[in-house]
C-alpha cells in the first residue's frame, strides 16, 4: 500500500515524463519510458496543477475551492493519488 505524500511536499514531473493531451483519443496521458498511464478525470484535474511550485496541500486547496468540497477529504485523495504516480517513477517529490 502506497503511503500518502506529505501535504508540504512539492511534486513535479521529471524531465523524461510527459503529461499531455492524446488528441486522437481525446484524453490525457502520462508518458514515460516504456510506460503509459491513463489518469481518470479526477486525477487529470490534480495533475494539471502539478507545476513544481504548488505543494500537495496547495493543489488540494485549489480543487476544494473549485468544487466546493471539504478540503481534508480532497487532500487525502490528492496525497494518495500523487504518491501512487511517484512510486511508479512518474513524479518527483521535493
Amino acid at each position: 500500500m502506497t503511503q500518502a505524500l506529505d501535504p508540504a511536499a512539492i511534486p513535479r514531473f521529471p524531465r523524461h515524463v510527459r503529461f499531455q493531451l492524446d488528441a486522437v483519443r481525446d484524453r490525457w496521458v502520462v508518458l514515460a519510458p516504456e510506460r503509459m498511464f491513463v489518469p481518470d478525470e479526477q486525477a487529470v484535474e490534480i495533475l494539471k496543477l502539478v507545476d513544481g511550485a504548488r505543494s500537495v496541500s496547495a493543489i488540494a486547496a485549489e480543487l476544494a475551492a473549485r468544487y466546493q468540497a471539504p478540503e481534508d477529504v480532497v487532500l487525502a485523495d490528492v496525497a494518495l493519488m500523487l504518491a501512487d504516480l511517484a512510486a511508479r517513477g512518474a513524479l518527483q517529490v521535493a
Partner: peptide, 12 residues
C-alpha cells in the same frame, strides 16, 4: 511516416 503515425494516434 512520423507525421502519419502522430495522426493515427501513436504516442511513443
Amino acid at each position: 511516416i512520423i507525421d502519419q503515425a502522430a495522426a493515427l494516434g501513436i504516442l511513443q
